[in-house]
Design a binder for these strands. Structure first.
Lengths: 211, 211, 211, 211
DNA sequence: CATGAATGAGGTTTCATTCAT
DNA sequence: TATGAATGAAACCTCATTCAT
């Protein structure tokens, strides 16, 4: 999907008056709530409007269609995760490779778990609302952040491979998804965090030393 | 989703007569074709029936509802992948750990790529048809197969951890999914194969030696 | 509008079973009734379905959309008029020019008046449903019929001019439209018939003798 | 539609201040533009307001509803045509019948063509906004103007028949409409002008001499 | 006066599923 | 058994109009 196709999902109108900002926020929150309580299949614009306490008309004034609504929430969530991970990468520069990876992975897992409910619900719809294109964009951001971080590692023998980083990120996201779709228990989260750290560490070490 | 819920997705009748078997096969194939040509969103039972050359009534005689239809195809695909991987695991016993992992991973990637189109299309719907439950079932099968294989590794110091294997499989599947959703180029597939082998090898080595 | 654009207005499905023929007829008649009783502005598919005694779903099985529904009725009506006029032209060959024109004009007026209600109602919608394209098609038919008839006139000095015939037909249709939109009284119809005959006769005589 | 019904379509307030006049003019022009660029079907008050650079609220202050908006433009256009024809009739008094008709017809065709785009666009909506009633009013004006003109013709043997004049005007308007709906080429316009002159001349000559 | 946020009835259309033939 | 006509709930979305600011 070309970048231009995303335009269709952008919000229709920017709030000018104060009250409309409240409305937009209400709709956004209602979107999540409906997604959580009714599931992706029973997610309808009417229900969202009702939950938000506004009319369908109002909803469509801000989001041209259902996809735009979901896309906005998805984008929000992904941006939050991306920003968190980027910050972690920034913060982990110059530290030893293993430490870098640990901090990055933990930031990712924690950011996802922070709103585990949303994450899980969004997986159900992301494919139908231009999710893949967004994921691509976010992946690229993360790849760059990780790449920049790795280049400051004092103990990495080789420059890191773009594709390897992509693979690591995809693997990490995939494992996380698995967990979220299964419904995560607190213990499982802790274990996954550990395992993912180990997985990414061992992979990155192998990938930056071998060629 | 509890296991009992799966009953609703099972095919309604077992084909006994030859005529039925043909019909079922035609419907199954049509399902894939419609999924591929029209996409998940425009996938309708009417279209499937038309493509299969049967009436909607007939279709509903074999599959009680739309979900069952999709579930059957998904199950088929997953079973095929599972069987391929299980066979690879069987075949790789007693070999060195790195070799084991390589064969298992390559079997997985190849099986997925064999019908890359189906894989990609199914991702779009799996969440809505009880896919997660099925994935859980399949994951367990694969975990067991890998576990059994690993126990025969002459160079693994520690008994493998169930959770680690799950993590590896989820990571592997997640990376594969990423690739398929992005639209895989031949080159990218080859590279992912290599990287995934490396990823799983390094992770498993770390996971079976450290504790 | 190219001819291909008309495809969108064609009926969706040809009735196979006997009962569906009844349904189609009922829908067609209901379309006219709703048009007459509610007017073009309050014409909705829901109302048509209700009036026809079928569900909205059934209606859309035969007519993909509202336009198709109206177009079908319009086409029907126009075809009827065209056929009547064509028959009159056929029948008036070789007669004197004035007689020819009289028979043609009277056939036209009578055909229109036969279902004056429909005619009037259809004017309100024709522009929005591809009417102009259809009118073009019908006009051409009529022009050819009139042309062929005129060529057999024993007392016409010059070969008739295509454009003149078109003008005459447009004028005739326009005057008729005026009357129908005003709501025709029986007396007015009789007078218009006479006047239109005179108008067309004098024009055709002038147009076939002068150049 | 009774005359009283027209009241609903009249503009709500008379522009007294200069600022209002500008606004009204902007809205009026925007109405035409939206009609031309979006078509009758996608004509909305919101779009008109946006194009005019005012808010929907303001628009509704000057025009109580959508119909009033369109009606005003239609009325404007028709009045312009009527005035032009009336002036031509005034100017053609006492001249020979054929000359009278020529000048009247040419004035009509030229007035219509002057804003051919508007004419065409208005045909699409006139039926839904009380157009027929307006047309009746305008027709009467034209009939009177033509009637008065004809009474001064030195070479007309009989007093002209009201109904005949109505018929002529309706025929003329109908032919013009046909042309405009087909999309007029410059050549076609010239030819139609000629033909309409001939048509009206021959008809009027026949109608004023015969009884 | 002007604004534009909000309304919500009302429209079109889809499609899984049933059931008489 | 196979057919396909019929169902109708339910979805999305539009847009004329109102009214608090």
């Amino acid at each position: 999907m070309p970048a231009s196709a995303l335009i269709a999902f952008e919000a229709r109108k920017t709030p000018i008056q104060a009250r409309s900002a409240v409305t937009v926020e209400a709709i956004s929150e209602a979107t999540i709530q409906v997604l959580l309580t009714h599931g992706a299949e029973r997610f309808t614009t009417t229900r969202v409007a009702a939950r938000a306490g506004v009319s369908v008309g109002t909803l469509h004034q801000y989001y041209p269609n259902k996809q735009a609504l979901l896309f906005a929430v998805l984008e929000n969530h992904m941006n939050h995760v991306a920003e968190t991970v980027e910050a972690a990468c920034e913060n982990a520069r110059i530290k030893p490779l293993a430490e870098m990876i640990r901090e990055m992975v933990e930031a990712f897992v924690d950011a996802k778990m922070e709103r585990a409910d949303i994450s899980g619900a969004l997986y159900r719809v992301s494919a139908n609302i231009g999710g893949p294109a967004l994921i691509k964009r976010i992946s690229e951001r993360l790849r760059k952040a990780v790449e920049a971080m790795l280049q400051t590692a004092p103990d990495a023998k080789l420059p890191p491979d773009k594709f390897a980083i992509d693979t690591m990120l995809a693997a990490m996201a995939g494992a996380m998804r698995s967990l979220l779709e299964a419904g995560p228990s607190p213990g499982a989260v802790r274990k996954l965090r550990e395992q993912l750290v180990l997985l990414c560490q061992s992979y990155m070490m192998a990938a930056t030393s071998v060629r």
